[in-house]
Computed example of a mutant assay.
Amino acid sequence: MNNQLKTAALLAALSALLIAISYWVIGGSAGLIIGVGIAAATNLISWYQSDKIALAAYQAQPVSPSDAPGLYRMVEKLSAKANIPTPRLYIVPGSNANAFATGRDPENAAVAVTEGILNILPEEELEAVIAHELTHIINRDTLTQAVSATVAGAISFLAQMVSYSLWFGGNSRDGNRNANPLGMLLTVTLAPLAASVIQLAISRTREFSADAGAAKLTGNPRALAQALQRLDVTARQMPMQANPAFEPLLIINPLSGKFLGNLFRTHPSTEDRIEALLKIEQQLLTSV
């Protein structure tokens, strides 16, 4: 529940940032309404096509039960236990070890795993990873990400509009004659940055929730902790060149080689996630 509240608060912060920028910089201009509408429509289309876009970005290939019978049985068993339809299953070619879930709801979901993760994880750790991805589907985290992307996209679009007005003198219209150019410049620079920071923070809270859900679904928090540790080591040795737009989908930060600090991480640190899982394990042991 704590992570749910954090997510709600962060979504509210994104919305508040959008409203503040709209009120302070653009006011009630028709251009604002059109701009937000375009940004929202663009992200809405992306939301409905998110599974296809993400799967294509990673060149994921669909697999049938006959292609990977053991993996299919694992996904079917966990899906039945979670009381959701079995998602479509895909395998991403390559030796990098990662996994992700996509789709707008449990009825239109897909789970993708890399060839690398199938090769390095023992069965119980792979099961924990699959449970993590199914929890993302159960929690409708793709919906949360779509909402945050929509609002963040609208903020970036508005900032771009303000940038154009600074260059072409548009700030003299629609009641903005007295706008502070320095303030507008700061808005253009900082608003998209703030939106990205909040959007990434939302992604991090959803990872903690998915880890906790996987621990409850399998009853084996340590298996996921061990899987994350193994995946983290592998990612450092063999970074995955992921599309930045889809990095939040992956179970582990692909570590593209750029150090941007905690504010710009798509995932919580692996150490923090493992610590949280081991606390859940202690809670399960004490409740027996």
Rank of each mutant, 00 (worst) to 15 (best):
P122G: 05
L200K: 08
G169E: 03
L143C: 04
E107S: 15
A214R: 05
F168L: 08
N96I: 11
W167N: 13
N180L: 14
F168T: 10
P122M: 04
G169L: 09
L134I: 12
L193A: 13
G213C: 11
S156Y: 08
A154D: 06
Q160V: 07
F157H: 01
E133F: 08
N176K: 13
G175K: 04
T189W: 15
F100L: 10
V113I: 07
F100D: 06
A210F: 11
D211I: 04
R140K: 13
P106D: 05
N108Q: 15
A112V: 05
L118I: 04
A215I: 07
H132F: 12
T114E: 08
S196N: 15
A101W: 05
I117M: 13
L89P: 10
A154V: 12
S172I: 14
E125Y: 00
A128Y: 08
W167K: 13
N178I: 08
P93K: 07
V162W: 00
N178P: 00
E133P: 07
A110T: 11
E207R: 02
N96P: 02
F100K: 04
D174A: 09
T102I: 05
H132C: 04
E115S: 14
E127V: 11
E124K: 10
V129A: 06
A154C: 10
A215K: 01
A179R: 06
T114N: 10
P93G: 11
D141C: 03
L182C: 09
G170A: 09
T114V: 00
V151Q: 02
A159R: 00
T150V: 02
V113N: 01
Q160M: 14
G116M: 02
V113T: 04
R104H: 15
S203N: 08
A195G: 07
F168I: 09
G183C: 06
F208V: 07
Q145E: 09
A194L: 11
G183Q: 03
H136M: 06
P192W: 04
D105C: 14
G175R: 03
V113S: 02
N119F: 05
F208P: 04
G169N: 04
S209L: 09
E133N: 11
M184F: 02
A159I: 00
V129R: 02
F100S: 07
I138V: 15
I155H: 03
F100A: 08
A210Y: 10
H132Q: 08
I137V: 14
E115H: 03
E133T: 01
E107A: 15
G175A: 05
N178A: 14
L190S: 02
T187A: 10
R140V: 12
A149Q: 15
N176D: 05
I155W: 04
E125N: 12
Y90W: 13
R173C: 00
